[in-house]
Design a binder for these strands. Sequence first.
DNA 1: TCGCTGGATAGACGGATGTCAAATTAGATG
DNA 2: CATCTAATTTGACATCCGTCTATCCAGCGA
Lengths: 121, 121
Amino acid sequence: MSKMPKLEDVTDPACCAPLSGPALSEAEAAELAKVFKALSDPVRLRLLNMIASVDGGEACVCDLTGAFELTAPTISHHLKVLRQAGLIEGERRGTWVYYRVVPDRLTRLSGLFALPALVPA
Amino acid sequence: MSKMPKLEDVTDPACCAPLSGPALSEAEAAELAKVFKALSDPVRLRLLNMIASVDGGEACVCDLTGAFELTAPTISHHLKVLRQAGLIEGERRGTWVYYRVVPDRLTRLSGLFALPALVPA
DNA sequence: TCGCTGGATAGACGGATGTCAAATTAGATG
DNA sequence: CATCTAATTTGACATCCGTCTATCCAGCGA
């Protein structure tokens, strides 16, 4: 839509091959680390959880803010981190801003932890 | 007191339910965050990658250290973080120490990012 | 026993990160 | 336009984290 800042593109690299696969390049590891860094905070995990599990797929910031004993700027900061990691995306509708998860991102992370068939012949 | 954590017991909580599932408790989110924090460093990701993909399932620290332009204490520190997160475990055999992944841990993380069947209204 | 080597620990230092208060932007409504 | 509310940005501050050097511990072999 309008001018949603592109921010950082963490979408291409190191998203598909499992950790048990071919060697991660330095750059791939760095990009991946950014995503996990975004997930490495309890508040952000709960935010992502709330957004991912809300009925309708969208959560209003106004609702998220009330769920924590933190100031609005702090919640806003965490949402920005999640957004920059490509895990969520936001949209303003009138007075309020709504966030939803980027399913593709989560699915790809899932594949990262896939293990090769244990016990080969 | 059956749930008394020894050092850092990150094994029980928040391991199975997907992020899109029921609300994460504060404690669950905190424990999960520890695991992701362990994964939020490029060096640790590459270490885990190397350990997970090495033939035989075990990697000698002596080999891991040589793969980075970092001092041995730094590598040792990163391995400790991964170990405390429950992602790897080490064993000393004679002069050398070998690390291997904890498959259960990785598999569970995979499930975290599973999404419910997309509901097209 | 001594000495050598692989690995872990301790302490220090600089840069990153989470939090808040204050200021700012964007829509809605008088 | 004036003003109110929702949300973000800015700047400051305390804490945390990655890295190093120096030191210590554990096996092995002469």
